[in-house]
Amino acid sequence: MSTSSEIYSLRVNGTDQHVKDAWIGESLLYVLRERLGFMGSKGACEQGECGSCTVLINNDAVCSCLVMAASAIDTDIITVEGLAPSESPNDIQQAFVAEGAVQCGFCTPGLIVAVHHLLETNSSPSEIEVKEALSGNICRCTGYGRIFSAVQLVISQREKSIS
């Protein structure tokens, strides 16, 4: 937009990114995707209802569609791309594929971030805690059963590797 002239930086996945010529009203989701090319965060409601746009800001899981990008300066933003290098997907990503938790996959990046956040804050959640933690992430394809299996697989693998 021609009226825009803002310049600011965001720290995304550990690297400073300059946002040029942005309109100040842009959401973090828009800036991540359209200005910085982090296409992993998806938008499906832009209203905070579906979780497809979930990212970590200072280790909190948030809906990036509800955050003004310019208000996220001086925070640590982690997107799905920042969770693991592309050549070595993490255990959550592998479990999602192995357990059939991915169909169309549109909800998947947001869920991967949400599951990562859950297991960082609670390494052995109960079944109901898992459901509660993921209840802000809508999946229209899977009916959630395989997603629960994937989470259980990660939990049991991590427990095994500790003991």
Partner: peptide, 20 residues
């Protein structure tokens, strides 16, 4: 139970949806 070829890319956010 073969695994989907697009599965991993979808978990990593690198699979291109039409909106991407």
């Amino acid at each position: 139970s073969a695994l989907r070829p697009d599965g991993l890319a979808k978990t990593q956010g690198t699979f291109s949806f039409s909106s991407d």
